[in-house]
Structures are given as structure tokens and as C-alpha cells.
Lab assay of single mutants.
Amino acid sequence: HNLTITQGKLFFHYNPKLCLSEIHKMEEVSGTKGRQERNDIALKTNGDQASCENELLKFSYIRTSFDKILLRWEPYWPPDFRDLLGFMLFYKEAPYQNVTEFDGQDACGSNSWTVVDIDPPLRSNDPKSQNHPGWLMRGLKPWTQYAIFVKTLVTFSDERRTYGAKSDIIYVQTDATNPSVPLDPISVSNSSSQIILKWKPPSDPNGNITHYLVFWERQAEDSELFELDYCLKGLKLPSRTWSPPFESEDSQKHNQSEYEDSAGECCSCPKTDSQILKELEESSFRKTFEDYLHNVVFVPRKTSSGTGAEDPRPSRKRRSLGDVGNVTVAVPTVAAFPNTSSTSVPTSPEEHRPFEKVVNKESLVISGLRHFTGYRIELQACNQDTPEERCSVAAYVSARTMPEAKADDIVGPVTHEIFENNVVHLMWQEPKEPNGLIVLYEVSYRRYGDEELHLCVSRKHFALERGCRLRGLSPGNYSVRIRATSLAGNGSWTEPTYFYVTDYLDVPSNIA
């Protein structure tokens, strides 16, 4: 807008934040220059609390790290170098490059900038070799853009010569660093050979998330399962459950009422301010606690030095998902009996873990797994792929695949051998790939016309006998059925096997 004052003059007093240069501009645009008398524009009460600059400061050096910015700028000295009290560095987070010096300023003089007072450097006698002032900004957020400017702080001049310097606002972004852990990993099994893994992005990506790394490792069953005799009275049979499938998407929606109208769909109840505040506090606490764990609990591995020492970490090797089922080394339970199943799973520490690289999504279907087997899954978020990966501390989750139908069934015939004193040795093959492992066998036998009897055969007993022995049988026709019990439950009964026990007292003698 054009402003013209045809008559009258300007009068400025007691404006401590208004620089004289701005008042002189007002004289020019209003056409009143030359009308004012000496005392109409006070030299001592206008701009006496402001830094009124008329020179431009330029930054000469900028260096960044993930949490620091090192700045240096060209030296500046007023005509009387004693008038320079120091520099004021202003900075704040700036997602967009549209910041002005006066953003967030209120009537009390406060604003949204963080201000650092910096002492002037030592003055050199040689004007050509003056030290460049600077400042190291610490405690910054990774991968965050900051708006920065600097200006001088000078003393009051009796001659009211307006001098000083100020830089333009520059924008500097800190470097990326390792992201925080992925949030809320959930693993479920939808079949006997697959596990579905879902997660949420890290709360602090500290860069642009480029991919996720998912490692999985087959877990050995508890050692007590191999040692305890679950045929003993009072000892509860062990059981394991597989990871249940995901709930429906509708039930997972946030901010939804727990109660549904019987007449149909209901609208979600909005969260109160107290609920939102509580969630923010919980989120802040979780982030602080995660940072504490990362800094205190997890110790970084030592990389190899120039002395030739090897990095103890196993090298990563990509495998196809079809090879995942046989990740671990199978060892027989008892070496003397080769027909026992290889369900003991000690994992070799030198073995390469299978892994998958996930790009542009937060889910993965891990296939080719062994049925009813526990897996430990390790999830890392990465925001750099080359020249070397920059990934987060791992988040861990466990899951067990679903049982395989008929995996616990005894394959092959049940054979028998009759000894003296009416002892019958029953023999059968253990299931080759049971659900988890076989903890015991149930032997059901009966003599024709009598009630059915049951015998429990422990895992250890089966390994020693290759089956079991029935003792003290009365003469007669017998039928026997056997079924295995694994961590997933009972298998199917075998087809009945028949044998006849004679009275050993009636056996004919070869003595003449």
C-alpha cells in the first residue's frame, strides 16, 4: 500500500525493539523526510534493546553428524571492536523451508527459537588472519532439518551509529543413524509349514526405512522333555500350542467401542483428552525405555581390526524358502538304536541362519518350516543398504507352526516275539517326523474274553527296548493296539495285532 503524509511529521519514542533503520525507511515511504526535528525521533529510546544489523554474515563451514552440527561463519568486528559482546545463534526444527525470524513471537518477546549466546573469538592483530567464530550444536535429532541463523550482539553506541551483522536463515539436516526397533511384532501360524509375521514401523526411523531383515531359527525343545518319565503317576503330560491366527481386521481397528449394538453396526467412541494424553505418555515412556535398553543392555560386537582377528559373527547367506525346513542338525536320541526319531534339535552355532529381506511392506510369510516346531524370529529395521547396512537392534518374537495331521501315527506293522515265561516283546517304529517329539506310547492289549488293559511306555523305555515287553501273560489269544502321544496330543491307534500265548508248562520236552 502507498502511504503519503502531505502535512505533519513523524514522532517515535520509547520503541526499544524498533531499529532506527526501520524508522528511516518509514520517513522515505511516507514522504516526511526532512520535516522531523532532532528530538522527534529519539536516538536513545528507539532500538536500544534490539540488534540492528546492516551487514550480512556468511557461514564459512558446515559439518553434520547424526546428532551434531558444527558451524563456522566469517569474522565480524565493528569499528570499535570492544562493542562486540558476542553472537546469538538461533535454531529450531523446520520440516519445511518457510521459516521466518519472527515465527511464534508474542507480545512478551518470546519466540519459538532456541538461542545460544556465543563469546567472540580472540581478536588477531592481523586483519587478514582473524579467527572464524563458530559453535557445535549438540543433542539434535537424527535425520531432522533445522533452520539456523546467527547475528551479532553489540553494545549501545553513544554516537548512535547503527552497526551489526546478521546471516540469512539456512537449512541444515542432520545425518541418518540406526533406527529404533520395529514396533509390535506379531507372529502367527496359518499352516503346519508357515508363519505369518506382521509389525509396525519404528517410532524413530532416523532416516528413510529402506528394508527390513527377518531372521528365523528353529528352537530346540526343553531338555526336561527328553529326561522326564511322563508315565509316572502324578506327572502331567506336557503340551505345546501353536500360535493362533490373526483376529479379523475389524476387531483390530483402534479407537473402536468394545460393545456392539445388537441391531447392527455401531460407531466408534472418540477417545477423551485424558485417554489420548495417557497414550502419549505411555508411548514416550516406551521410547525412553527402549533407548535405555539399547544403550545399557546391548553391547556392540567388536569388529575385526587390522591384526587379522576374525569377526566372530557368522556370515549372512541367503537361502531359498524351500530350504528352511531342514535348518537344524538332527541327532538321534540314543545312538545305539537307529530307529528312534531325530527330534532332539541342538543347533550348531556355526550354522548360517536363513533370512529374508523385506522391502516396502511390514509383513512376511515364512514358508518351508517344520510342522509343530518353535521358531525364534528376529526382526531388524534398516535405513541404508549400501555401502553397508545400517540397521536397528533386533526385536524378537516366537511362534510355533501348526501340527501336521497323521504325523504322530505309527507307520509300519507292530511285530512281536514270544519268549519263555510268557513274555512277549512288542516292537514298532517311532514316527519319523512327529509333531514336536514323542513323549510316550500307549499300549492297549486284551486277552479274548477279558477286559482291555493299558500300559504306558516312556520315551526312554522305548529307546532301550525298541518297544516294550509284556510279562506274566496268561495263555490265550491276544490283540494289541499302540498309539503315540506327542507334544500336540495323541496320534491314531494302530491296526490290531494278534498273537497267541501258550502255557509254557505244557511245552513238550526233548528229553527222552
Rank of each mutant, 00 (worst) to 15 (best):
S203W: 05
D204Q: 04
P205H: 04
N206W: 14
N208Q: 15
I209Q: 11
T210I: 14
H211Q: 09
H211W: 09
V214F: 10
W216F: 12
W216A: 06
W216I: 11
E217Y: 13
E217T: 11
E217G: 11
Q219F: 12
E221S: 14
D222F: 14
D222K: 12
S223L: 10
S223H: 12
E224Y: 11
F226D: 05
E227C: 10
D229I: 10
D229E: 06
C231P: 03
C231Y: 03
C231N: 03
K233A: 13
G234C: 15
G234H: 11
G234I: 14
L235A: 11
L237V: 09
L237P: 06
P238W: 15
P238G: 12
S239E: 11
R240E: 15
R240G: 13
T241F: 11
W242Q: 12
W242Y: 06
W242L: 12
W242M: 04
S243Q: 09
P245N: 12
F246W: 11
F246N: 14
S248A: 09
E249Y: 05
D250F: 13
S251P: 15
Q252N: 02
N255K: 08
N255T: 10
N255F: 03
N255L: 03
Q256L: 12
E258M: 11
E258D: 12
S262M: 13
A263I: 11
E265K: 09
E265T: 13
C267G: 04
C267H: 15
S268P: 15
C269D: 12
T272M: 08
T272I: 05
T272V: 09
D273R: 13
S274V: 07
S274R: 11
I276W: 12
L277N: 15
L280N: 14
E281C: 06
E281A: 12
S283D: 14
S284N: 11
R286Y: 07
T288S: 09
T288G: 10
T288M: 11
E290Y: 06
D291W: 15
H294G: 04
N295V: 12
V296W: 08
V297T: 08
V299T: 07
P300T: 13
P300A: 08
R301S: 04
R301K: 06
R301F: 02
K302D: 15
K302S: 11
T303Y: 15
T303L: 04
T303E: 11
S304D: 14
G306W: 07
G306D: 11
T307S: 12
T307A: 06
T307V: 09
G308K: 02
G308A: 11
D311N: 14
D311P: 10
P312K: 05
P312F: 11
P312V: 13
P314R: 15
P314I: 03
S315T: 13
S315Q: 10
R316V: 11
K317C: 07
K317A: 11
K317V: 13
R318D: 11
R318K: 13
L321M: 11
G325C: 11
N326L: 15
V327P: 10
V327Y: 12
V327A: 12
V327T: 08
V327M: 05
T328K: 10
V329H: 13
V329P: 06
A330D: 02
V331N: 09
P332C: 04
T333S: 07
T333G: 14
T333N: 06
T333P: 03
V334Q: 05
A336D: 13
F337K: 06
P338V: 08
N339Y: 11
T340S: 13
T340L: 08
S342Q: 13
S344Q: 15
S344K: 08
S344T: 11
V345K: 06
T347Y: 10
T347S: 12
P349K: 12
E351S: 14
H352L: 08
H352Y: 07
R353D: 14
R353Q: 14
P354A: 10
P354L: 11
F355G: 08
F355E: 07
E356T: 12
K357S: 14
V358R: 05
V358A: 03
V359Y: 11
V359K: 11
N360F: 10
K361M: 07
K361L: 10
E362G: 04
E362L: 07
E362S: 09
E362H: 10
L364G: 09
V365A: 14
I366A: 03
I366L: 12
S367Y: 08
G368F: 06
L369M: 08
F372C: 08
Y375H: 05
Y375T: 02
Y375K: 01
R376M: 03
I377N: 01
L379I: 09
L379Y: 04
L379D: 01
Q380S: 05
Q380D: 12
Q384H: 08
D385P: 05
C391Y: 14
S392Y: 03
V393W: 11
A394I: 15
A395R: 06
A395T: 06
A395Y: 11
Y396P: 10
Y396V: 05
S398D: 07
A399E: 09
R400C: 09
T401A: 02
T401I: 03
M402L: 11
M402G: 02
A405V: 10
A405E: 13
K406F: 10
D408S: 02
D408Y: 01
D408H: 01
D408V: 01
P413T: 09
H416W: 12
I418Y: 06
N421Q: 10
N422E: 13
V424Y: 06
V424G: 02
H425K: 11
H425T: 06
H425E: 14
L426A: 01
M427R: 11
M427K: 14
M427E: 15
E430H: 12
P431N: 03
E433C: 08
P434T: 04
P434N: 03
P434G: 03
P434A: 05
P434V: 10
N435M: 00
N435H: 01
G436F: 06
L437G: 04
L437Y: 13
I438T: 10
I438P: 01
L440A: 09
L440M: 12
E442Y: 11
V443Y: 01
S444F: 13
R447K: 05
Y448R: 15
G449D: 11
E451P: 13
E452K: 07
H454S: 02
H454M: 15
L455W: 05
L455H: 11
C456R: 03
V457K: 05
V457Q: 05
V457G: 00
K460F: 07
K460H: 09
K460W: 15
H461M: 12
H461A: 08
F462K: 08
F462G: 02
F462L: 04
A463W: 11
L464R: 09
L464G: 11
R466L: 08
R466I: 09
G467A: 03
C468S: 03
R469F: 15
R469N: 13
L470Q: 01
R471I: 09
G472T: 07
G472W: 11
G472H: 06
G472E: 09
G472R: 06
G472M: 09
L473G: 01
S474D: 08
P475E: 06
P475I: 08
P475N: 08
N477Y: 08
Y478M: 00
Y478Q: 02
S479P: 00
S479Q: 04
S479M: 04
V480W: 05
V480G: 01
I482V: 13
R483S: 03
A484R: 00
L487D: 07
L487C: 14
L487Q: 06
L487G: 02
G489F: 06
G489L: 05
N490R: 15
G491L: 01
S492N: 03
W493R: 03
W493P: 02
T494S: 14
E495L: 04
E495N: 14
E495F: 14
F499T: 01
V501Q: 03
V501I: 08
T502I: 04
T502D: 03
T502M: 15
D503H: 04
D503W: 14
Y504S: 13
L505R: 05
D506L: 13
S509R: 05
N510Q: 08
N510P: 10
